[in-house]
Nucleic acid binder design. Structure first.
Lengths: 162, 162
DNA sequence: CGGCGATTGTTTGGGCATCAAACAAATTCT
DNA sequence: AGAATTTGTTTGATGCCCAAACAATCGCCG
């Protein structure tokens, strides 16, 4: 499938370009893997007629599991600015997946919560994520997957320059 | 500066929020590691008074190592659309790091090449990247780093849904 | 108890990545 | 020669990201 067996002598040279040091770089491998995984995530959802990004999934899980979370706390957990979170919540709220309720104890805060339909959607999404995870981990044994997650965690901690 | 050592009993509860299934997900670990690594990359460069993204570094390496590369070939290698590449090259060219020369053999193509100053800059950048790589890999043995890169490659191949 | 400082969510403004669609110029195929 | 393809570009639409400024609200402290 790479190229027509041996037909046209030099239809498309496909020069197999030189990547220099890149293949030895951890950051490069990470970036490429991340990109492929993101594409697989998107494809898995759109194939099921759903639309969601990994970030939105993480957000929904966090809100679903932590009742009455504030936007600032959520932004912190996601590692993004509070102002960045606003349009994301707007969209999710417009889709009817979550609501911003005024906190009774503190009039400044919004207590975030999934709607019932948001809860159902999250269950559905979680199923799709499991399918997706099965695919991206298909070339790894269960032990390798655990190892990988552990190593990624070490990288994350080592990178801390924030 | 983090917080007053042990003064007020419950100044900020910091509720340690529940991440649900997220910690078991490979995609989640990947995304978090990627984010931290990106931040470390930026910090490493800006601390040295330079400014570059991982993507730009990869692009420069590719152009430096593959003389006369066309924009379409480069976009393919980077996994982005040719139209996305245009403003990126504009910026790099404006910084004097590379040039678009018209190909003598094919008037449609641009033969990309680093300028001499671009070559010098790339050498400097490569040094910074090595520093950065040392930091993000600081909690890993050399063997673990190799293992990690190998596992990431397997993930990338497994994810192929393009 | 009244004002001041801190916190929260939001708006605005700027930057950058990404894709799709449409186009002119150049090349290649028929 | 004429048609089809390729290449780089422009335009338009999303979306993420941050910083700075702001109104509303809360909490502390005099």
């Amino acid at each position: 499938m790479g190229r027509p067996p041996a037909k046209s002598p030099a239809a498309k040279p496909v020069p197999r370009l030189d990547r220099g040091v890149l293949p030895t770089l951890l950051g490069y491998a990470l970036r490429r893997a991340q990109s492929a995984v993101f594409a697989d995530f998107s494809a898995t959802f759109s194939a099921a007629g759903e639309a969601l990004t990994p970030g939105e999934f993480g957000l929904l899980v966090l809100v679903g599991r932590n009742a009455g979370l504030s936007q600032t706390a959520l932004a912190r957990a996601l590692g993004i600015d509070r102002s960045t979170l606003v349009p994301i919540l707007d969209r999710l709220q417009a889709r009817g997946l979550l609501v911003r309720r005024r906190s009774p104890s503190d009039g400044r805060m919004h207590a975030l919560a999934l709607t019932s339909s948001g809860g159902e959607a999250l269950a559905r999404f979680t199923g799709l994520v499991k399918t997706h995870e099965r695919r991206i981990g298909s070339r790894l044994s269960a032990a390798e997957t655990r190892t990988l997650i552990g190593l990624l965690e070490k990288v994350r901690l080592g990178a801390r320059s924030l």
